[in-house]
Amino acid sequence: MELLEKTDKIHEELLKNFEEKINRGDAIEPKDKMPDAYRKHLMRQMSQHAHSEVIGMQPEGNWITRAPSLRAKQILLAKIQDEGGHGLYLYSAAETLGISRDEMISQLHSGKAKYSNIFNYPALTWADIGAIGWLVDGAAIVNQVSLQRTSYGPYSRAMVRICKEESFHQRQGYEIMAKMMKGTKDQQEMAQDAMNRWWWPSLMMFGPHDSESPHTGDAVKWKIKRHSNDELRQKFIDKTVQQAEVIGLTIPDKDLKWNEAAGRYDHGAIDWNEFYRVIGGNGPCNKQRMAHHIKVHEEGVWVREAAEAYRVKKEKQLLHS
């Protein structure tokens, strides 16, 4: 009993030190003591973030061979390579918490770890590539800019690096949309159709309303999260409406209107049933996305094995030379 009380006391002391550090605005580094719940929250959030970057390569990869010009193809290739790179920054940062890459990938494959719901939608036309860059990356940027100030050092540093690279992604998407809106009637309709399909899922990327969000409490207190889901969503809407207007696209929300008193746009109700249906595995592409990731992962096993075998052979040669 006495021992238990003693451990409780030590535990309390550690938590107090940790929270003082957080409140001072100090970054938490890998070797610092941190509450289990903090570590677990970060592992969950960062691995999900990394998986999203990697799974996000799929809908766009679908269009590499069909890009309408060499310029567009080069840009798309560079963008997708960036997404892969961002996944790696994030895996690397998450590994500092003591979770291995193997573990993260097997959690993805088993369904224990999620990735952003948005990538369960298909990229049906070239305009979708525009909409993904402009809206999906645009929404991601709003979230990631906020995360640059997250309390965990390695996560924050990865975010700074990612944000520097992401703004090209959003611009290339917006450029595609702007070009199509200056094109033929068919092209304009195609752009509007992509807008109609990607707008609401993009708003859902910020997660449930603050009143419904299960992970917000500790994440805010420990400064993992610096802004709430609704704050970030609002920020995204407010900056995107004007961009749509400039190129002549209509936001598919009849309730969207400027609220002069509040200095922001009010928007219509989000269909959360749709959100939970897709998260639950019943979106248009959930099975395809995961099947593809597993297939590529398994097809790559021999490469990793060969690389290991080569290392062993080289080391033996060194030993005998």
């Binding site: 920054y89 690397s92 940062a93 590994e95 193997d102 540093r157």
Partner: peptide, 30 residues
């Protein structure tokens, strides 16, 4: 058991004469 290969820490010099600064890590066999 699958292996994602060993991890290596990466330090980058941004221009000649500058300090090498830690950037992150990568996985590699050698």
């Amino acid at each position: 058991k699958d292996s994602q290969l060993a991890t290596w820490e990466v330090f980058i010099q941004s221009k000649p004469g500058a300090n090498y600064i830690h950037a992150g890590s990568v996985h590699a066999s050698d």
